[in-house]
């Protein structure tokens, strides 16, 4: 800073900007904002770090650590077997209920956790949001990603169950990643809507646990799909998680469940969850500009 000349510059004169510097214009965005997926890509390492931090921190200072991930679905499975199969007889025919329930619990638990976490993520990260700039979409997305680790750990339990019940896998196992992707898209779509709404309306915090609970009963996780009366099938197909759970079961147990989920069920699920994801992403982007002022 050697020169101390008169540095008053007219604000309106166009600045001589050197072309090799990145130019960022900051002004009020109006209307529909672009999704700016390119920027999201540029920050992909942050996404990775956030997901990794989530996992790392979640089970710190717990006695059982990562075993919690396995314990939860096992306990649910045992309770479900007792309540739904033994007591209510709502289980399927010809399939060991334990495996049937677990195959449904696996994607359901992933979905429920990812949805709840992404819905509250914007509020729990308010410290970060009000202090640093980065594409906000990363926050709820990282919760969708970090949930995959829990999912992967639960697969170990599944493998043990399959061996115990001597269940042979077939090629249909290969469709499972596609249904997992459908669960991710659904969770992210709803997570973006709820996460953005939560910034402004804390009602969401109270709604989500209730929503997840109701959603659980409207998804054939604990009971067999065959128990759904024909006349209600279409209504339930509007719930994308029905297709996910059905697809998972067929993928794992095609020796028992020979009927794959119907094409229309899957198509409706894909359409609904895609629409929710796309509108959710835009809604998030539009409300994002005021997050730091309101959160």
């Amino acid at each position: 800073m050697a020169v101390k000349e008169d540095m008053k510059l007219q604000a309106n004169t166009s600045p001589e900007a050197s072309p090799h510097y990145k130019e960022t214009v900051i002004k009020r965005t109006r209307g529909l904002a672009a999704l700016q997926l390119g920027e999201l890509w540029a920050f992909r390492e942050l996404l990775y770090f956030m997901a990794w931090r989530e996992i790392k921190v979640r089970y710190k200072q717990t006695l059982l650590g990562i075993t919690w991930i396995m314990l939860r679905p096992i306990v649910s499975m045992i309770v479900f077997t007792f309540v739904f199969d033994t007591m209510l007889g709502a289980g399927p025919e010809g399939v060991p209920y334990e495996v049937y329930a677990f195959a449904g619990l696996l994607p359901w638990n992933y979905f429920a956790t990812a949805l709840s976490r992404s819905s509250s993520s914007m509020v729990t990260s308010s410290q970060l949001i009000t202090k640093v700039y980065f594409p906000r979409l990363i926050v709820p997305t990282s919760e969708i990603v970090s949930g995959l680790i829990d999912f992967a750990v639960s697969l170990i339990v599944l493998a043990a169950l399959l061996m115990y019940f001597k269940i042979q896998l077939t090629w249909t196992v290969l469709v499972m990643p596609a249904f997992l992707l459908l669960a991710m898209v659904t969770a992210l779509g709803f997570g973006l809507w709820l996460g953005a709404l939560n910034v402004r309306y804390r009602d969401v915090t109270y709604i989500v646990p209730f929503l997840v609970q109701m959603w659980f009963f409207l998804t054939p996780v604990a009971y067999a799909t065959s128990r759904i009366p024909e006349s209600y099938r279409f209504l339930l197909s509007l719930n994308p998680m029905v297709a996910v759970v059905e697809g998972f079961r067929w993928g794992l147990l095609s020796n028992y469940i020979t009927e794959p989920p119907t094409g229309s069920l899957v198509a409706i699920a894909v359409i609904i969850s895609s629409v929710v994801l796309i509108t959710g992403a835009y809604f998030f982007r539009v409300t994002e500009r005021t997050f730091a002022d309101v959160v």
Binding site: P15, E23, T24, V25, I26, R28, V132, Y133
Partner: peptide, 23 residues
């Protein structure tokens, strides 16, 4: 505003270069 945490109501700012903010 300059670190893009919040948007201005009107007017604009143009920044030439990579910004690091230590708020």
């Amino acid at each position: 505003i300059l670190s893009r945490i919040t948007e201005p109501t009107s007017g604009q700012a143009t920044i030439y270069g990579r910004v690091g903010s230590l708020l």
